[in-house]
Structure formats: C-alpha cells, structure tokens
Nucleic acid binder design. Sequence first.
DNA 1: TTGCCTACCAAACGATTGTCTGGTAGGGTT
DNA 2: AACCCTACCAGACAATCGTTTGGTAGGCAA
Lengths: 219, 219
Amino acid sequence: MAGTKAHAADAPRVRRNREDEVLLAAIDVFHRKGYATASIQDVADSVGVLKGSLYHYIDTKEDLLARIFAESDEQSHTIMQEIAALEITAVERLRTFARTWSLWYLENVERSSLYFNEWRHLTGERLERIMDQRHRYELYVTDLIDAVVREGEADPDLNSRYAAFFVLSAINVLPSWYKRGGPDAPEHIAEVWADMIVGMVCHSEGRRKPRSGGGRSGT
Amino acid sequence: MAGTKAHAADAPRVRRNREDEVLLAAIDVFHRKGYATASIQDVADSVGVLKGSLYHYIDTKEDLLARIFAESDEQSHTIMQEIAALEITAVERLRTFARTWSLWYLENVERSSLYFNEWRHLTGERLERIMDQRHRYELYVTDLIDAVVREGEADPDLNSRYAAFFVLSAINVLPSWYKRGGPDAPEHIAEVWADMIVGMVCHSEGRRKPRSGGGRSGT
DNA sequence: TTGCCTACCAAACGATTGTCTGGTAGGGTT
DNA sequence: AACCCTACCAGACAATCGTTTGGTAGGCAA
C-alpha cells in the first residue's frame, strides 16, 4: 500500500515519482513545441533539473517518446477490452466505441495529439508496433461497420473500409480542434460526435429503423 | 512567349525554373522527413546544390516553408471562388465543396499534408495569416451547413459548428490515409467521401427528401 | 573589350543539439 | 563505522544545424 518502492514513500508528499514527473513534463513540452523542435533541455527545465540528469531516467530522447506512447497504448488497450466485453448490438457498439473514444481523446488532448502527430519520429521496432496498432484499429472499426451492415442498419452498398477511415478520421482529429475550458463539456461533445458517426454510417437510403431503445435487440 | 526572363529560356529544356525546382524539392523533403527534422542540407542535396547556394533563392528556412504555403493558399482561393460562382442548392454546394476539396487533397497529398502538419512552424504574421485562413474555412462550412438546415434538408437541431468540424476533419485527414496508386481512382474516393459527408449532414431523423436530381431546386 | 548580373561554390561561423563521463551528497542497510 | 545505491550536478563531447561571407565562372549588354 506504500507503493512499490518502500523508501520512496517517505519523500515529500507533493512530489510524485520523479520518473512520472519526467514523463508528464515531456508530454507537455513535446505537445507544445513538437517532438523534433523540443529539446531535452526544455524537458529538463520543465522538471527543474540539468539536462544530463534526465539520462538517469531515460536512454535516449526517442526512448522518452516511446515510453509516452507505451502508456497511451496501455490505456487504449484497456478501453478496447471494456467495449469488447459489452453485450450489445453492433450499432450500439459502434456508438459506444465512438463515444468512449472521443471522450478519452478530449480528456487526454496532449497525449493523443502526440500519438497522432509525432509517431513518425519513432524508428525500428517501435515504429512497426505503432503502425501495427494503427492497422488493427482500422480492421476493428471496419469489422464493426460490417457487423452494422449485417444487422441491416446500414446501406449494404456502404464501403466499410472507407467508412472506417471516415469514422476514425472524425474521431482522431478531435484533439486538434478541442480547447479545454470551452462552453461544452467533453461528455457532451463525445455524445454529439457519436451521434454524428452513427448517423453517418446508418443513414442508408431510407432503410433506417428507429433507434432501438438503448437495450439490445435480436439479430 | 519565351517566358519572363529572356535569357533563361535558352537553358536546357528539361530544367524548369530553378526556383520552382527548389520549392518542389522542399515539398518532397519536408513531407518525407517533417519540416523540423529535415535540414536545408537535405533540400540542397535533392536539388543537387550546396546548401549555402539555396540562400540565393530563399531568405530563411521558414521562408521556404511559407512560400510553399503561399502557393497552396493561392490554389485553394481559386477553388473557393469557383465553387462560390456556381448557382446550386446548399446541399449540392456542400456536396461540390466536399468532392472538389477531397479531390484536390488526393491529387496534392504532399502539399496538403504539409499544410496540416507543419503550419505550427511558421511564426509571427505568417502564422496569423494561416490561422485566419483556417478560421475562415470553418466559418464558410458552418454557414454552408446552416444553409442546408434552412433548406430543410437537415435536422434543425444539428449543431452546425460541430458538424462543420466533423466535415472538415473528415476531408482534412484524407491525405494522411491516401497512398498513391491504390485500387481506387482519386475521383472515385472523392465521390464516396462527398456522399458520406452529405449523408452525415442530411440524415436527420427521417426528414430527408430524395436527392434532388442533380440540378437546382427552389428554396 | 569592359562591365554587370546571375548562379553557384568553398569554407567558415556560432549556436544548439543529444549524449557521455566522472564525481558527489545523502539516506539506507549492514 | 563502513558501505552502497540512488539521484543528481558539472562539464565536456562531437555532430549538426541555419546562415553568412567572399569569391568566381559565364552569359549578356554596351
């Protein structure tokens, strides 16, 4: 209960684990200046430490970026599992996917902006892993939309691959528009976004059924 | 007819104006490596010139980026005027906007990718001009969607600002997905994209009318 | 022929970069 | 008291960066 490292728990309460502090500072700095433009110096300044000292916690600058991404990957994996566990219609699954995901992006603007804008700066195996992850997302959404079509809730002529791109685009760009402290709560925006996405997929030429009352419906 | 500079016309026909050559090389290099990561050296290598020699054509590295953007701005301004000149329904205007714009992005992937990914690296007045332009686009699309609502082709409860974001997102992200030489022609993709966008805006709760036969319809 | 202008080379500049090395203060363990 | 380990400092490292300067080959005009 006192944390994994016993002696670290005695440090002043206000200071979290220094390693986390470095990660958080890096997220902020990389988000504001861009990974390539931001320097290790900037991150060190933000933490309040000489730049050389950072190498006590990280191996390289790219390693710092990769670690941020790893955290994001972890959290997104959790979200995906939660959605997968729900027993609901394909349409409702799509809606849940859109809403949950939009909300997460809105609540983690910096992290998700980094994920979309700076992934090019990874190299080798780490780059491949990111691109794999991205590809799996596309497939997941494509399958989801195919399922919606199979349920008869969308136009059978809908190109599910394109539709998936469209849906992902709309969600992914959220963090680049959103400014914190706007008039609308993130929850509200996420709801609207989910509506638009489901509407876009399901609008098919007059074939739409009324929205099933929130519960599940038989296939 | 021999070009603006008489003596330049005698240069080997295969070599275009060197200034254009520099711009094209910069577009390619900045697109591949990112503005911050790419060096003036890289651009010079691509042109086949020492890096110092580039400063015969440009003032600074940022100036080079800004000049690329200026070209893009010019072309987009032309497109906007062409669309504005058409006398068509708001829905068809939206569709035309989406189709034309999508197509332009698909045919100018490098240029438009730069426009979306590297605009942060401009400073001062040039940055402000870009952000102004961006803002004007949002307003234009918002107004367009309001017009669609006023025509009764979309749900009156539709939040036109959000819908505009959504539409712009979907279009803007196109160049980051598209790979040249894929199975589908850019024209086809643009058509599909326009359909999805119009569908998303117009799907409003069963109020949709059949698509007006391509011509104009009275208000 | 003389002179100018364009287009480029060759070489250097100061600044900044990511990273490494060696040292050390201080708390914890033995 | 002796030792070790973590967390950091101080300072240097080579490399790379954008940019500048001075020079020059060659075509064009007078």
